[in-house]
Design a protein around this nucleic acid. Structure first.
Lengths: 143, 143
DNA sequence: CTATATGCAAATTCTTTGCAAATCG
DNA sequence: CGATTTGCAAAGAATTTGCATATAG
């Protein structure tokens, strides 16, 4: 089952409707390999003649993020973009040259945080790890 | 040497000027135990009668962040705030109840990322780790 | 049919910028 | 004095909201 199908199934199961605009947005999301912003996605839709309202884009992205079908990627500089989420792969390596995102699990990280939490008596409920650098392809290409 | 003194020394060493507004801003920054935003800081200054321009606040915070005297904390929801940085302590545990930030080093994390980078031939240039949860004090208080 | 979702335009919020006046060193 | 910094107000982004209309189920 493709990502779109899974999302649609999931949303339907929760009583959300599978509307035209939502299908279009899902379709366009899949064209990105790098993190994108709501405005970028909106512009892409409009450029190719798809008339979807700005609010709908914002609302749909938020909905998808809440269901973890999209994840938010932050950069130290403060920009944030969305990337398609794969359940279980929670962390990201973002290539600063081509923008590609590689996801990985943080099993060892959990151990590290677990130890820390115990030492500090801090109850950790969630965490966030992101690294940026240059991917193999871009290194070869001379970045 | 206090944080303010260190910052002032560091800035002076780089040819920046130790102006009144900058001193005021440093003073107010230290009143926060939780992450704060530029607007919050500006409001705090104004509420207590300190007349500093909005642009000055934004520019000073950015300057401090560039020198790593302040660090940016991101929340999954997308808000970001500044916290006083202690060199060498790069990661944060943020308490969602009281907002307090505990900093820690990520030595083990570096190992994890190093292995990952090697496996993927990815050159990691920076990373970002943040966890949120409830601190000991707030757990005791019943959060 | 009816609850949900959409689209629009206006309202907010956050941040940046240009430039003359002020000020630190 | 001269370069840096400030403050202002305006410009520019990014995001949210209210509400009438459209539409999926």
């Amino acid at each position: 089952m493709s990502w779109s199908e899974q999302v649609l199934t999931d949303l339907a199961a929760e009583g959300h409707r599978l509307t035209g605009p939502r299908r279009q947005i899902l379709d366009y999301i899949l064209r990105y390999t790098a993190p994108f912003t709501a405005e970028e996605l909106l512009a892409a839709l409009h450029e190719t003649g798809v008339q979807v309202g700005r609010a709908t884009v914002y609302r749909t992205l938020e909905l998808l993020q809440q269901h973890e079908w999209l994840r938010l990627v932050h950069r130290p500089e403060g920009e944030h973009g969305y990337v398609v989420g794969e359940p279980g792969h929670q962390h990201h390596l973002v290539c600063r040259a081509c923008g590609k995102v590689i996801m990985f699990e943080g099993c060892e990280l959990d151990k590290l945080l677990g130890g820390l939490a115990e030492r500090l008596h801090f109850r950790i409920e969630g965490h966030w790890l992101e690294a940026c650098g240059v991917c193999h392809g871009c290194q070869v290409a001379g970045a």
